[in-house]
């Protein structure tokens, strides 16, 4: 079953058709979402009532476009803020983790490494509720001790950020570790021989080497945070990020406005992904 082994024509055709069908299956839902963003109707479904840009730029009811819909714009802002915080935090901790596991031998290293991987195999919703429970235990404890009500420990943006950070850090650690393992340590030693202290050597030699992986991890973390649903659902307060805001609207019935938002999301994330690929191609 490789090109050098002769197979019957019928087999090759069936196989090719199967793969084509598979890609149709992959493309279908996304294509449909994109196309109906331009339907001049109240519903993202047939019949097709003609082409319109109103769901993007419309200013009058009932067709208020994405760019004039306050609720959606605010949710996009919230999501971007959360994703930015999560990306910076998780890449920072991911980098220190990578150095720790790459450079040091210590007792309990194996155990810590497995613990570090665990967030990937804990269901997102369980991560969410465990953090919800612990933060509320903390908040209640502080109230009992000092009669202080710490609002930050109640469901809201801080908890959303911490919840997403708790598992995205694992991914950042893995991405950065993979690159650090390829680093030639004699380069760092050469810098030390030339009179640099350890911090300078790491800053001027190792970190620039890691930069592509760190940029990649920032983008991956940003996208994962932007799209996260399960963990966010359990920790969200009154400021809803985009996925939650869209979910609430979808439950009430949808208009092509949601298609327009979705199309912009697809374009945005493809653009980011493309940027990473281009950035990593650079020698």
């Amino acid at each position: 079953m490789i090109p050098t082994i002769p197979t019957s024509r019928a087999f090759r055709l069936t196989y090719g058709a199967y793969v084509a069908l598979f890609f149709l299956y992959l493309a279908l839902p996304l294509t449909v979402v994109a196309v109906f963003a331009f339907n001049d109707s109240q519903f993202p479904s047939l019949p097709w009532d003609g082409f319109t840009w109103a769901w993007f730029f419309g200013t009058e009811r009932p067709q208020i476009g994405v760019f004039h819909e306050r609720g959606i714009l605010r949710a996009v802002g919230t999501s971007a803020f959360v994703a930015g915080c999560v990306a910076v935090l998780s890449v920072a901790v991911g980098t220190t983790n990578a150095f720790l596991f790459n450079r040091y031998e210590f007792r309990g290293k194996g155990l810590l490494y497995v613990l570090m991987l665990l967030p990937l195999v804990i269901p997102g919703i369980v991560l969410g509720i465990s953090i919800l429970i612990f933060s509320s235990t903390l908040a209640n404890g502080i109230w009992d001790l000092a009669q202080m009500d710490i609002q930050a420990l109640r469901p809201g943006l801080l908890l959303v950020i911490l919840g997403q950070f708790s598992f995205i850090t694992t991914i950042a650690t893995l991405v950065i570790s993979a690159r650090l393992q390829k680093f030639d340590r004699t380069l760092e030693e050469a810098a030390l021989n030339l009179g640099a202290d350890r911090l300078t050597a790491v800053r001027t030699i190792t970190l620039p080497f890691l930069a592509p992986a760190m940029v990649g991890a920032v983008v991956v973390a940003f996208l994962m945070s932007f799209e996260n649903f399960n963990t966010t659902l359990m920790l969200v307060g009154s400021d809803a990020p985009l996925t939650i805001a869209m979910f609430d609207r979808l439950k009430e019935g949808s208009t092509p406005l949601l298609n327009a938002v979705s199309l912009l999301l697809m374009l945005g994330s493809s653009l980011l992904a493309l940027l990473v690929i281009l950035f990593q191609r650079r020698p």
Binding site: L26, A27, L28, P29, L30, T31, V32, V33, F36, P44, S45, L223, F226, E227, F229, T243, M246, F247, L250, S254, L258, N259, S262, L265, M266, S269, S270, L272, A273
Partner: peptide
Amino acid sequence: PFYVSELVRTFGWMI
């Protein structure tokens, strides 16, 4: 397809 939120994918199937 996986650069897009799960919500969008589910929405596509609903349509």
